[in-house]
Structures are given as structure tokens and as C-alpha cells.
Amino acid sequence: MTAPLIRIEHLTRQFQSGGGFLSRPRSMLAVRDVSLGIARGEAVGVVGESGCGKSTLARLVLRLIEPTSGRVSFDGTDLATLSATALRRMRRRMAMVFQDPYSSLDPRHTLTQVLAEPFQVQRQPLPPGTIAALLAEVGLPEGLADSHPQQLSGGQRQRVGIARALALRPDFLVLDEPTASLDVSIQAQIIALLADLRGRLGLTCLFISHDLGLVRYFCDRIVVMYLGAVVEVLPDPAAAPRHPYTHALMDARFAPDPAQRKRLAPLSGEIPSPFALPAGCAFAARCPHATDLCRRESPRLSDDPAHPVACFHPL
């Protein structure tokens, strides 16, 4: 295997909240010691419940926020060592599609202005015909070029967001819940578009989602996060889960066919507060297989390169 395009090493991000006149600030680890490599052309999915730190991870990887510790290398370059100018140049090679297509486009800009912005900020000439080509690439008619985002539907806006991300032909694309704000029927179209573009442009992707089904469809490898830490890495989308949390996530899907429908076994217990994590495994309180060991000690992600899992009692 060649060197990965993205190498994430022991990435940690702490957030502080509160801290007023008489109260001390509380801190939480949104991302705890995450290490991950993404090979060129690979699509890695990150799944987990809301608040598990997956969006923070996405922003850390692109250095939109600074890590508390750990590092991210892009094509062999540690992003933290780059100067502001060098980082800006590096941003040509990586892009992000955001969750909310309603606030990710400036309401005062026309689509032409939105799609010209990447060239503008990178001080690159805008080749003639680029705007029309970008619109066509994401399946939007050229006639929309002078419209404002408010005149577009959610699905159309997300297509614009994708076109903007792809404008400078990046190597690496971060997709932060690109379909979570859309209707289910539109979701399928957007995912199909992304899968098509990924194949055609040979993109390396980091796909953030809470929807395991989408991630299994789109990705080559799946990282499962729970309260800021990686609990399991599924080597392929069809792999059987080994961590009880992943198992529960897969079990929690509704089957469309009533004949296949089984009783849902929802997780009992509460998610621990990220401000006061328990001493042992963070999942122990909700885990049906938890033992005293789990409540006492925190399991580390196993070294097994084929299928790492952070559990004392993997399934």
C-alpha cells in the first residue's frame, strides 16, 4: 500500500464551555486520540450519533479549527507547520461540502459569484465557460447562473455547494452530512451524483454521516465513533460488526419490508455527559455485554490491522 493521502495521528480537540464570574470553565474532549489514514482514491466513512465529534473531526482534518494535540498530514505535509499563505495554497487540493445548503451559500451572491469565488480567493484565472461546465457537472441548467440561492430548492443548493467544492479540482473532499438536511428522495439523487463524481474525478473522500446505510453505500471503509473516540473500523462496508455499539447502530435501522421487520431493541441507558466521561469504556453504561472490567478500564483500539475494535468483549 502506498503512503496515505491523509494521515491523522493522535488527533485530540478539547472544547471549553462556561467559565463565568463564579463558575469554573468545564472542558470536554470532542475528539479523543483519533488516528486514521486515508489512501488516495479511498472513501472513508465516519458514523456516530450526533455530538460524537464527527463534524469536529472533519473540521480538524481541514484545519478549519486547530487541534489541541496530534497532527494531520496531507500528502506528506504536516498541515500545522504550514504558513498562512502555504495553507491557503494547499486548500486548492482539499474542499468541503457542508451539511446545511441553506446557510452554506451567501444569500447576496449569484451562482456565478459563488462558483467564481474559489478561483478568486486562490487568485487563479477563471477559464471561460467554467461556470457553465461546473453547473452542468452537478446537473444544473446553465440558466440558473444568475439566480440567487433563495430561488433554488435545497437539493439544487446542495448541488451548487458540491460544484463549488469541486471547482478547483481538489484531490480530497470532506462531505459533512451532505444529505442530512434534504428530503429522502433528494438524498438519493445527491448521493448518486457524489458517487458518480467521485468515480470520474478519482476523489479521496471523508464522508461524515449519522446514517450507516448511506455510509455503507458510499464508502470503502467505515470508522465508527462514540463520544469522540474511534470504537471500530470496519474494513469493508459488508463486514460484520464486532463492537456492541456498531451492532446496535446496525440493528436500529427500520426495514422497509414489513415481513422482515423485527422488534427494535433500542439501547437502554444514557449517553454519559461528554464533560464527565466515566473511567472505563464510554459505552459501558449502555452496553448489554459490559462487565466490571469495562466499567473500570478503558479499552484501546486493537492493533489488528484487518479490523480494529476498541472493546474487551468483541462480538
Binding site: R88, S103, R164
Partner: peptide, 20 residues
């Protein structure tokens, strides 16, 4: 707003974000 973060992710400078 997300479009500010989006501009930043494209490599926009502070001046660009403020004035555009």
C-alpha cells in the same frame, strides 16, 4: 453562518471574508 466557514475552507483571506 456556514458560508463564512465555506469561504474559509476555500482559502479566503480575512479581508475577502469581511469585504465580500
Amino acid at each position: 453562518e456556514t458560508f463564512i466557514e465555506a469561504a474559509r475552507s476555500l482559502g479566503a483571506s480575512n479581508g475577502h471574508i469581511l469585504f465580500r
